[in-house]
């Protein structure tokens, strides 16, 4: 195995160590002085002021979002794969079955930023590339309830189904507007109060204490 033995500072006698010491201190001072007299070496970025010029890498994971096609429709079919892959149970896909249909469609896509660890698995597994991470990192709020997001503006079928309907007015009938998620939310613990009735069966009840 190739090894290198690290160098050790010389022991030397007192006088030579003393002069070495003075020299080393002066060398150190030269390094810092060079930075003082070269303002171009400053690396500080003044964040809120440089918002316009601030460019983050495109792969930065800061917020989960939906991709929409040119008509403003998404391709989500409420298949729940992202929900199953999420290690923190941060995603809740609430689906609905329209009257007279057997196929379920997306009602509300709830994403809890407060418990998300940005592992990107939901994006990786999405079969229709609906989900993506964007770089909008300014998501701090004063109330934890506001960290529960609804990612879609409407409830309705995927764009593939919608676009089969030729008439624009007919299409509009198929979808219902959805605003930001305002359902009841537990501030701590799991599961979300309120949602649990619809999505979670009794099996999700927390285990009885010992």
């Amino acid at each position: 195995m190739k090894t290198v033995i690290v160098a050790r500072p010389g022991d030397g006698n007192f006088v030579s160590r003393f002069f070495y010491g003075v020299k080393s201190l002066l060398t150190g001072m030269r390094v810092t002085f060079r930075y003082l007299v070269h303002p171009s070496t400053v690396v500080t970025q003044q964040y809120p002021e440089n918002r316009k010029t601030l460019k983050l890498a495109e792969r930065v994971r800061a917020q989960l979002s939906f991709t929409f096609d040119e008509n403003g429709f998404h391709k989500c079919t409420a298949c729940h794969i992202c929900e199953q892959q999420c290690p923190n149970a941060s995603i809740h896909v609430m689906d609905r079955k329209p009257a007279g249909s057997t196929k379920s469609e997306l009602d509300t896509f709830i994403w809890r930023l407060d418990s998300c660890t940005f592992c990107n698995l939901c994006v990786m597994v999405c079969p229709f590339q609906v989900l993506k991470m964007n770089s909008n990192f300014e998501s701090s709020v004063y109330d934890q309830k506001l960290l529960v997001y609804n990612l879609t503006p409407y409830a309705g079928p995927a764009s593939s189904v919608l676009m089969k309907v030729a008439d624009v007015e007919e299409r509009k009938k198929l979808i219902d507007a959805r605003g930001p998620y305002d359902g009841p939310t537990a501030l701590s613990g799991f599961p979300l109060a309120g949602i649990s009735k619809q999505v979670f069966p009794e099996t999700t009840q927390i285990g009885a204490p010992q």
Binding site: Q84, N88, A89, F200, T204, I206, G207, A208, P209, Q210
Partner: peptide, 12 residues
């Protein structure tokens, strides 16, 4: 067999 009220249970 340890049970505890803070344990994370996935809902599915």
């Amino acid at each position: 067999d340890y049970q505890d009220e803070f344990m994370l249970r996935k809902p599915w």
